[in-house]
Design a protein around this nucleic acid. Structure first.
Length: 223
DNA sequence: GCCCAGGTGTTTC
DNA sequence: GAAACACATGGG
């Protein structure tokens, strides 16, 4: 077990789950709301995203048709609390245009094809695409983010500067034998975020960390 | 005032 | 490819 020495990707999951419990992600009511949230949370605190989504709901604009119908500068005003609002207004419209044209086909497309299609949409990069694939459409892709790089580089499992695809491949490969990969990938990423917000921060709080016994970085913050 | 936050596109080398 | 930069609000 992971009580002593280094963690693996598999044992760190067990430890995080025991520490924090199930996270019940994604924080959003519908697949479409999850898609919107995935764009709005790009390099942005979730509390700010919630305000922007509340604005969309207030204006009855949480649908692809409504977002495409509203002028870009009006949409940007509604998105203002989430930051980068001009950029995100354009990205959200691009995603909605794609969704309008492809929503019917999604359930019949295989995951590789779907991922390729999402990555071709303006403003949808690998992390946003994988958020949507995993949390909105329940496809078995592992989401890599800045928190994942920080935690697992501190644990000594990765360097941290590997390419996105390299890390996604690593995590998916290590967890490939799990019976329900969608549920595990969902829970694991959520646990990484939870752990990063409270404990594995830029300045780590290793004295509170459930992984401290296997984490070389605990020394750095122990004084 | 400064750092940080669930990235991505563009430009440049 | 990969490094540098723009994009912006709100909390600690």
């Amino acid at each position: 077990m992971a009580g002593r020495g280094r963690y693996t990707i598999a044992t760190a999951y067990t430890a995080l789950l025991r520490c924090w419990g199930p996270q019940h992600w994604w924080p959003g009511d519908t697949p479409f709301e999850i898609m919107v949230g995935a764009v709005l949370t790009q390099n942005t605190a979730w509390t700010n995203v919630e305000r922007a989504i509340a604005n969309l709901k207030r204006h009855r604009a949480l649908s692809a048709r409504a977002i495409l119908a509203v002028p870009a500068d009006t949409l940007a005003e509604w998105l203002r609390p989430s930051g980068y609002f001009n950029v995100k207004a354009k990205r959200l419209k691009a995603l909605c245009a794609w969704y309008r044209d492809n929503a019917r086909r999604i359930r019949y497309m295989d995951t590789v094809e779907l991922r390729h299609a999402l990555l071709a949409v303006h403003g949808i990069g690998p992390e946003t695409a994988d958020d949507i694939l995993l949390y909105a459409w329940e496809r078995p892709v592992f989401v890599i983010d800045a928190y994942t790089r920080r935690l697992f580089s501190r644990l000594g499992i990765i360097d941290g500067d590997e390419s996105y695809e390299t890390l996604r491949g690593l995590f998916e490969n290590r967890l490939r034998r799990r019976r329900d990969r969608v549920a595990v990938f969902n829970e694991y990423h959520a646990l990484i975020v939870r752990h990063a917000k409270d404990v594995c921060r830029p300045r780590p709080r290793c004295e509170q960390c459930c992984l401290r016994r296997g984490c070389p970085s605990r020394v750095a913050s122990s004084e």
